[in-house]
Design a protein around this nucleic acid. Structure first.
Lengths: 333, 333
DNA sequence: CTGTTAGCGCCTTCAT
DNA sequence: ATGAAGGCGCTAACAG
């Protein structure tokens, strides 16, 4: 398994062009202070030898790798996949590479993954880190430049986040307006910031509408969690369910259908995220549309800004839109 | 945007421990030929200074980066996302990092993305490259060590692939046994190897069952393509459809439902891949289950093998299982 | 404008 | 067992 080519270096090019390696370096980096004739000669030599500067050596001397790292809590989660895609393409458009680290929801691994990944790159994007605030604060100080996605911390850290609170409030309100007075919330990852935001929205709603029963059931973040919750949901006698996300909603939808319960006639179900599949369920899912591609792109732009200009980019907050489809309807009875 | 810490080097540790930097290097690399007392002193100094060797510098001198690159045609495709996840976690378990490059189905970009990514890493995984065979051959020679996923080329290249031909044949057979005699195939990415495999399966079937009409309609790889194909599908008067993949099948399913056509009573639909969502459609989708996580893991193991031992790993072929669910049924009439 | 030289931070013979 | 010195391949002063 030897390398394909014995690797051509800047010295080979210098020899072939009959110049010093400094000149080659200058030409390769577009330094204008080189005699056009020599420059052409160098370029020819480089082309003939199919030479490209070794990125590692450049990284070492320049102190930058043209690479950034992204840490996500779960590569299996459609939202993070989409954020990664938006980020990756935006970074590629600016000539940067992306290193990916998946903590697989192992909170204990987040820190070392982040630090490790950061050391081999120029900057870091932390997606919805699950670690507690204190630890996060320390980490952020250690890995700058860093941008945070879907989690708020220090004011000084550029952050790109979707608002989870307002849309969830709108979603409950939507159900309330349909006449629902006993509503289940299927809570997801306890440690996630977006879960806290959702809970905040619910207690705000409770304060406004004390006559409404909001029942919190702990669940998970995927299909199976949703499907597994079906009995508990039914036992509450609720007429509507707010699922932690679309996956949970779809799992529940499926389990509920298997029991012959009709949606939304007997039970309304709303999701969150608006993953591409959400419009293709039966019935199509009412949900809140989180602009994940944009989150990824904006995260990149924020990081890129701190990498090139050295102005600190402002944090941005994106507003998911509630999209009402057919899985929610008037409360029965 | 200055770095968080002014960076501590091996020299700092050497000074603090009162030894030469060679000794520090030896200790950090577990070289046993160091006086235990000195070694302890060095370790303490390193710990106090929170020192870790600069990975870039190590990479340059060692000639390896502990990083591999993965090139995928589309980060939005669930199959590639899953392969990436399996690969990423397996690589992480072996202490490797993963660089991700998304060609976004731009065939022209594949080569340069691959070469670029490979130069900053120790090895490459090419997922279902779309480029023509000739170009692929050249590329493979240039980027070794490399492993191919879901595309066959040279015998000498370690390859991990799912068999797309056998399961598709089984799927047609399944429809045939249900009485279907006019069947549409919704073809996906023309340049993809898996599409060719599917076409081969279909012509084999044609040879065996000349009385069966197999109609090929060109389509895409996503929801919209499936939904957009609905009129063309209906126009054929076919009683069953083999979609290129589950996404296409789901798009079609949805569009077909919107027209009041019942599945499978009036039209049977089968997908391919068995993405997680497939069991949650209405009706649940008949499909072939491609073991994407395993593909990713095996790809990593193959690459890791050539990276560490230098035996060439054997190529492996995985057999997707047909899973019959409710979206296919007896032909009407 | 061009070449020479000194590192970037680390590992590894080579002497001692 | 340990230290000194020479690179890995490249860029950036510093001289000419």
């Amino acid at each position: 398994m030897a390398r394909a080519t014995p690797k051509t270096t800047i010295i080979d090019v210098a020899k072939r062009a009959g110049v010093s390696l400094a000149t080659v370096s200058r030409v390769m980096n577009g330094n204008p202070s080189v005699d056009p004739v020599l420059a052409a000669r160098v370029r020819d030599a480089a082309a003939e030898l199919d030479y490209t500067a070794n990125p590692l050596a450049r990284s070492l001397v320049l102190g930058r790798t043209q690479t950034v790292a992204v840490v996500v809590p779960d590569l299996g989660n459609p939202t993070f996949q989409t954020i990664l895609r938006g980020l990756s393409r935006a970074a590629a458009a600016d000539g940067y590479h992306v290193l990916i680290a998946d903590s697989a929801e192992q909170v204990g691994e987040e820190r070392s993954l982040a630090v490790e990944a950061r050391r081999r790159t120029d900057g870091l994007v932390l997606c919805a880190p699950r670690m507690p605030d204190g630890e996060l604060g320390e980490l952020l100080a250690e890995v700058q430049p860093v941008v945070l996605v879907n989690r708020i911390a220090d004011e000084t850290i550029p952050t790109v986040a979707a608002d989870y609170q307002t849309p969830l409030h709108e979603l409950v309100k939507h159900l309330y307006d349909l006449g629902h007075r006993r509503i289940v919330y299927l809570a997801g990852v306890a440690r996630s910031a977006s879960n806290s935001a959702r809970l905040a929205a619910l207690s705000a709603f409770r304060a406004e509408h004390p006559e409404t029963e909001l029942i919190e059931l702990s669940s998970g973040v995927d299909f199976d969690s949703g499907a597994a919750a079906v009995d508990a949901v039914i036992a509450t006698g609720a007429t509507a369910v707010l699922a932690f996300n679309d996956l949970v909603a779809m799992g529940l939808l499926s389990a509920v259908a298997a029991r012959g319960i009709r949606v939304p006639e007997q039970l309304s179900i709303a999701g969150f995220d608006d993953i591409p599949f959400a419009r293709y369920t039966s019935p199509p899912l009412t949900t809140a549309s989180v602009p994940a591609i944009a989150l990824g792109e904006l995260a990149w732009h924020a990081l890129h800004a701190t990498l090139t200009h050295d102005d600190a980019p402002r944090s941005v907050r994106l507003e998911p839109q509630v999209v009402v489809r057919a899985s929610t309807g008037p409360a029965h009875r």
